[in-house]
Amino acid sequence: MTEYKLVVVGAGGVGKSALTIQLIQNHFVDEYDPTIEDSYRKQVVIDGETCLLDILDTAGQEEYSAMRDQYMRTGEGFLCVFAINNTKSFEDIHHYREQIKRVKDSEDVPMVLVGNKCDLPSRTVDTKQAQDLARSYGIPFIETSAKTRQGVDDAFYTLVREIRKHKEKMSKDGKKKKKKSKTKCVIM
């Protein structure tokens, strides 16, 4: 069974824990209790493949930012979460993405942009803004509501699919490099 290491990042209060708990335990946590770091595991079937999701729910508070490099190193894919009623959390996505790329030393890291709290009427981040940002990053965008469960499975499952595509691409690139290195030079 394939294991996928997913990391949920975003500013404090955007609903990272609520999304994760909704996926794992099928219930909505409405009281806000700032996370330092929590880890969850769940076995699911995605596109006919049974897999184990190892999900790291991270601290959004700035005082825990020193811990970010460590979990970013171990993560295979990242859910970059903002709240649709919090423009600052949307603007912060850029910083999370840049930090992930720096730590992973790669421009090509599996990510999904997630606009959470889409059940709320007080939207300050337009869907088109988020779609445009995701398009500019070359990553999928999904709106979710941890409260109603809308888009929750889709967000995590899409990230797994992005990781699969990335692994497939990397193995193809690896095979191309191996083929090239088999060419021999004969000096007579």
Score class of each variant (00 low, 15 high):
Lys178Asn: 06
Thr50Glu: 12
Leu56Asp: 15
Asp47Gly: 10
Gly75Leu: 03
Cys80His: 09
Asp92Phe: 11
Thr127Leu: 05
Lys182Val: 06
Cys51Ala: 11
Gln22Leu: 02
Val7Ser: 12
Lys172Asn: 08
Glu76Thr: 12
Glu91Trp: 02
Ile21Phe: 03
Val109Ala: 08
Gly151His: 15
Ile36Ser: 00
Asp153Ser: 08
Lys104Phe: 15
Lys128Val: 04
Ile93Leu: 11
Lys182Gly: 06
His166Lys: 11
Thr50Phe: 04
Ala130Met: 14
Gly174Ser: 09
Thr58Phe: 02
Gln129Glu: 11
Asp30Pro: 08
Gln129Asp: 15
Lys5Thr: 09
Glu162Thr: 11
Val81Ser: 09
Tyr137Phe: 06
Thr183Arg: 14
Asn26Lys: 13
Met188Ala: 11
Glu76Tyr: 14
Ile187Ser: 12
Val103Gln: 09
Met170Asp: 13
Glu31Ser: 03
Asp173Val: 04
Ile187Asp: 15
Tyr157Ser: 11
Glu76Asn: 06
Pro121Ile: 08
Cys118Glu: 06
Ala59Gly: 09
Gln22Met: 04
Met170His: 11
Asp126Lys: 07
Tyr96Arg: 07
Lys5Gln: 15
Ser65Pro: 10
Ser122Ile: 06
Glu107Leu: 08
Thr20Leu: 04
Val186Pro: 15
Phe28Gly: 00
Cys51Glu: 13
Arg135Val: 08
Gln43Ala: 10
Glu91Ile: 06
Arg164Ser: 05
Cys80Val: 11
Val45Glu: 13
Val152Pro: 11
Leu53Glu: 03
Gly75Thr: 08
Val7Glu: 02
Asp69Tyr: 04
Lys117Arg: 12
Cys185Ile: 13
Met67Gln: 13
Ile187Cys: 13
Tyr137Trp: 06
His166Thr: 11
Val186Gly: 08
Asp132Arg: 04
Arg73Thr: 10
Ala130Val: 08
Asp108Arg: 07
Thr158Met: 15
Ala83Val: 02
Asn116Phe: 00
Lys178Gln: 12
Gly75Met: 10
Phe28Tyr: 08
Pro121Phe: 08
Val29Lys: 01
Phe156Tyr: 12
Phe28Ala: 01
Leu23Lys: 14
Lys165Gln: 04
Glu37Gln: 00
Thr124Lys: 09
Gly13Phe: 11
Cys118Val: 08
Ala130Thr: 10
Asp33Glu: 06
Gly12Pro: 05
Thr144Ile: 15
Ser106Gln: 12
Glu63Lys: 06
Ser122Lys: 09
Thr87Ser: 06
Glu162Trp: 11
